[in-house]
Amino acid sequence: MNDRQLDSSMWVDRYGDIMYRYTLLRVKNVDFAEEIVQNTFLAAIQAQANYAGRSAEKSWLFGILKHKIMDHFRSQKRFQSFNQSDSDDSSVDDYDDSGHWKIFPKDWGLDPEKAAENTELAHRLEECMSGLSEKFRQIFIMKEMDGIDSTQICNEFDIKPTNLWVILHRARNQLKLCLEAHWFQNKTSE
């Protein structure tokens, strides 16, 4: 098949499932995910005439999907205004009065460059992510999974860069503790 042509009759069978999984990972809710995938295909079929063939069919569809997911985040945003408590540093408890770790971070015995090859651990992180508050989760996804520019994230959530750093730091800290409790704990006792 020519990579630079659209074949809408095959879209749902070819890309339906991967687009659905991609969406579900970001919006968590089955109904929303189904709706977003459907809206993406509908928008794509209406925009077919604008397809310039600059990218492959799949990337083109994913481009539209990413916009739809962002629209969804935006539509939810008004329900989750920024709390001052989001920028409080709750990780203070991790340190003693002299600023040292109460519990020393462990050596996970993994090379960060190779860690991404560990699919099982990736799934564990995926599970840990669902424990984050919705706002932290969305911000973490946009920044770390989708590589969206910090300035854009700050604009989307109407927060200052310093708030963004604190939120990211807290989200990472929480994920680290979750992985440590549910993965590395078992690994060392095996």
Binding site: K58, W101, K106, D107, P112, L125, E144, M145, K176
Partner: peptide, 19 residues
């Protein structure tokens, strides 16, 4: 170790994010 842990999380998140 802490830095390593955060880097591991960062790289894993990037993988999870792929299409």
């Amino acid at each position: 170790c802490y830095k390593n842990q955060l880097e591991i999380i960062k790289n894993l998140a990037k993988k999870i994010g792929s299409e």
